[in-house]
Every structure is written in C-alpha cells, then in structure tokens.
Design a protein around this nucleic acid. Structure first.
Ligand SMILES: NC(=O)c1ccc[n+]([C@@H]2O[C@H](COP(=O)([O-])OP(=O)(O)OC[C@H]3O[C@@H](n4cnc5c(N)ncnc54)[C@H](O)[C@@H]3O)[C@@H](O)[C@H]2O)c1
Ligand SMILES: NC(=O)c1ccc[n+]([C@@H]2O[C@H](COP(=O)([O-])OP(=O)(O)OC[C@H]3O[C@@H](n4cnc5c(N)ncnc54)[C@H](O)[C@@H]3O)[C@@H](O)[C@H]2O)c1
Lengths: 213, 213
DNA sequence: AACATTCTGTGAATTTAAACACAAAAGGGG
DNA sequence: CCCCTTTTGTGTTTAAATTCACAGAATGTT
C-alpha cells in the first residue's frame, strides 16, 4: 500500500458515492467533475481530487471522471460489493427500524439474524426474520461465521452483549447504545450516538440565540 | 468570546458528559481527573484538559475537576438545560423510534409535534402525540415558534420538507434522509446518515479480510 | 519541614489536514 | 494549427489539531 487514506478523506468518500449515484440516475452524462462534486457538497475541489487519488481512479483533464467508473470504484473501495452479513441484538423500536430498512442493501449490508431476551418478542416476525432467543447468539454467529454485530439494546446490556459477540468471533460492532464499550481485542467499533449528535444542534441554538441570563 | 472552540473539541464534549454522568451515578467521588477520562475514552489527557479550557471550568492540581460542576458546565455549554422543542416529519419506522425515545429528555430535546402525509397515519397516537397532517406543518411551527425540525421521510421528499420548515422559520434541521439538502439560508443542518456510517465498517472489513480476487 | 507524588494548565513542537496555485492535458472553435 | 477554456494532478503553503514536555499547584508522607 502506498499511503493510508486519512480518516477525513475516508469519511468523504460515501458522500461522493451518494452524489455520483444520484447524478447517474438523473442526468445522462458520462463524466462528472470535481467542481460539480464541490458545488453539491461544499467541499474544496482540490480536496476532492486529492481524496480520489487515494482510491484507484484517474480523471481526464478538461472532461472529468467517468461517472460509472467512479461510482463503482468508490463502492468497491468502501466494501459495498462485499456481502456484509450482520446480526442485530435488541429488537425494540430502533432495532426494528434498522431490521426493516431496505436502504442498507446497496451498501452490502444484510441483516440475517435478530435476537432479543424478551419472551414476548422471541418468535415474532420482523422484516422477514424470526426473532431468536439471545441465548442462541453465540451459536448462530459461529455457525454462519457472521462478522458484524449490531447492538440496539438499552445501554446497560450493551457491554455484556458486545462481549458475547466477541467471544463468538465477531469482527466489527455497530453500537447504537449510548455507552463507550470497553474492549481490549482488536475489534472495530462504530458508535452511533444519536443523542450525542443532537448536541451540535442544541449548542448551535444556544450560541445563536442566547437566552437572557 | 476569547477563542472559538474547534469542531473536534466540541465533538468530544458530549463524550465527557457521558463519562462524567455515569461516573457520578456509579462512584461516590467528588472529583474526576483528565487521566480517568483519558482511560475511558482513549483520548490524550492533555487534549482533554485543553478541551475543558474552552468551557468555563477550572480543575484543581493533584485532585482533578469537580465532577458535578463539570457535568453541569458541560450540560450548560452544550445547551442541554435549554428547552429544545422539535417537530418531526415522517412517522415511519425511524420516526416512531425517535418519537418514542425517552433518552432525549436529558439533552433538552422534546419532540412536540409529529407530521405525516399518509392518511392511514394521520390521527394515530405515537408516544403521546397525535400524528398531524403535513399540511398543517408551517402553521404549527409558526404558532409555537419551533426552532428544530426532524426529517425522517423517504429521501425524495426531504428537500421540499426542509424548504417548508425554513419558510416557517425553523433554525436547525436534523436530517435522517440520505440526501444533501440544498439550502441557501443560514440554517444549521445536522445530517445523520446511518448507511454512510456503515461504510466505515464495510471498508474496515474489506481491508482486514481481503477476499481472494 | 523537606520531599515525593499527582494532577492542572499551557507554551512549543510536531503532525495532519486543507487550501492555494499552477503546469500540463484535453478538447473545441476559428 | 493556434488559441482559449476547462479540468486534472500535485508540489508548496497555510492552517488546524494533537501531542509533548514541563512549570507550578495541592496534598500526603516520612
Ligand atoms: N429509539 C431511538 O430513537 C434511540 C435514539 C438514540 C439511542 N437509542 C438507543 O438505542 C437502544 C435501543 O433503543 P430503543 O428505543 O429501540 O429501545 P427499546 O426499549 O424499544 O428496545 C430495546 C430492546 O432490547 C431488548 N433487550 C433488552 N435487554 C436485552 C438483552 N440483554 N438481550 C437482548 N435483547 C435485550 C428489549 O427486549 C427490547 O426489545 C438504546 O440503547 C437507546 O438508548 C435509541
Ligand atoms: N429505518 C432505518 O433504519 C433507516 C436507516 C437509515 C436511513 N433511514 C432513512 O430515514 C428515512 C425514514 O426511514 P423509515 O425506515 O422510517 O421509512 P418509512 O417508510 O418507515 O417511513 C417514512 C414515513 O414518511 C412518511 N412520508 C412520506 N412522504 C411524506 C411527506 N411528503 N410528508 C410527510 N410524511 C411523509 C410516510 O408516510 C412514512 O410514514 C428514510 O429517508 C430512510 O432512508 C432509515
């Protein structure tokens, strides 16, 4: 590998993917330019060209990047073409929303197992999956060699579930519970803290409209 | 204002809030140190001290920061003590999950109105709110002077709904639809692109387990 | 009371990311 | 075929963020 892609660059790639995908759907153009992407996303155009140099794609001066090729190279680089099978634990409101969401397909994510501890939920059909007993978690993960675990249980159970997942050889965890998981092993943790992200809004509003003190 | 807080620092503050809050719940200690926070969050301790200098809090050498004070200063700085009333448009799976979620309360977020265009949904009770007709959106926002709009409709309606919200004087939008909203006005947009964040996982798995080509 | 320890606060150095600026390529028009 | 425009690719500069390193404050210990 020549040079590792910087984290901020990696974070921008899915945005390019989104733009180029909708560009291909709406327009009938073969090429897309960095300045077009720049306008859509408010990102410096030289920044975009530099980002695209990390993935294996070349553009044509005066013309742009081949849009289809760009889309596919991005998808490949981001792993969307891989089959990413995941199991999900905690089939509550949020877990159900994720399980039934069709939009993950184009990112290669396929949720293939649902688990809960609530007897009322076990056996129910969600999406087209039957909710399984949490006790079968390790067994199923191992049997189907699942690499991705999604946690949508209340925060206080998240740590123990993460540990169970890891014992069963999960490689990455998508954690929606508002806790910082304490993990030693070399597991990839992606925390999705919605309430935390709301802070940007509340802080912004506080800044711009200071209440009288 | 002496110096504006850098974006990455602001993004870390909610994490400190989370840790200090659970620290206060679990332990009976008056003080918390930057090295403790550092251990919990894997963030350099001098980084943490620097971040905390942006908000108005002083620590005591050899002792640490007053934990209760730190929690409250963070909460205040992030606007959690303000009443942040929001309306939500698109009462589907995700919208329902957000509307029924109790955890937002401690961040000052209160969802006070739900809107949908589907006649089957209008009139339903979700959480303890009745789903209102999308046609009443502008009127309600204006009447109650709502500042925050949450979008959980399919992506293709997001732009028009954002425009309606802005016409009614919304100041910040929390957008869960996977599109980049095209907005001229000075409105704060917080995009929450879950599928995009999944990319970090799929890219990581691709990197670490390269399939034979 | 001297000393060791542990923490904060902060300049200074280092690293990383973003922006600038321009050469060179590609294509169109006259 | 020459000139003009647009766009890529990248060396260089600038800016931002992180880490280092240590002085100085508070406290306990012998
Ligand atoms: N709903 C939201 O909008 C939202 C927003 C931000 C964060 N979150 C977080 O996401 C998580 C889920 O939220 P929710 O609203 O879906 O909650 P929920 O109560 O609707 O669902 C939780 C589910 O987890 C199951 N569960 C509990 N303990 C379990 C265990 N040990 N093993 C297996 N399953 C178990 C419960 O039976 C339930 O079905 C929570 O951690 C919450 O803080 C949710
Ligand atoms: N569910 C998830 O886990 C998930 C994950 C990532 C992104 N998203 C995004 O969140 C959004 C909602 O997802 P969902 O799964 O809840 O979808 P959903 O289909 O369950 O809900 C969408 C709701 O929006 C309503 N709606 C449609 N057009 C409307 C309009 N013009 N005005 C008002 N209401 C309207 C529909 O009636 C429906 O109730 C989508 O943009 C989706 O891409 C969802």
């Amino acid at each position: 590998m020549v040079k590792k892609i910087p984290k901020p660059s990696l974070a921008r790639l899915p945005k390019y993917y989104q733009v180029v995908t909708s560009y291909l759907n709406r327009k009938n153009e073969k090429y897309i330019s960095s300045s077009y992407l720049s306008d859509c996303l408010n990102i410096d155009d030289s920044q975009i060209r530099r980002d695209l140099m990390y993935i294996e794609i070349g553009g044509i001066p005066r013309v742009g990047y081949d849009a289809k090729e760009l889309r596919d190279v991005l998808a490949d680089y981001l792993g969307y073409f891989n089959l990413n099978e995941a199991i999900l634990v905690g089939v509550g409101n949020l877990g159900t929303a994720l399980a039934e969401y069709k939009g993950f397909e184009r990112y290669g994510l396929s949720i293939v197992g649902l688990f809960d501890s609530d007897p009322e939920k076990i056996g129910n059909l969600v999406g087209n999956l039957k909710v399984d007993n949490i006790e079968n978690l390790e067994q199923v993960i191992k049997k189907f060699n699942i690499k991705i675990g999604i946690i949508t249980t209340p925060a206080r159970y998240a740590q123990q579930i993460a540990e169970k997942m890891i014992k069963a050889n999960i490689k990455a965890i998508w954690n929606f519970a508002p806790v910082t998981l304490d993990i030693d092993e070399d597991i990839f943790i992606q925390d999705e803290n919605l309430a935390e992200n709301f802070s940007f809004i509340s802080h912004y509003l506080k800044e711009t409209e200071p209440e009288k003190e």
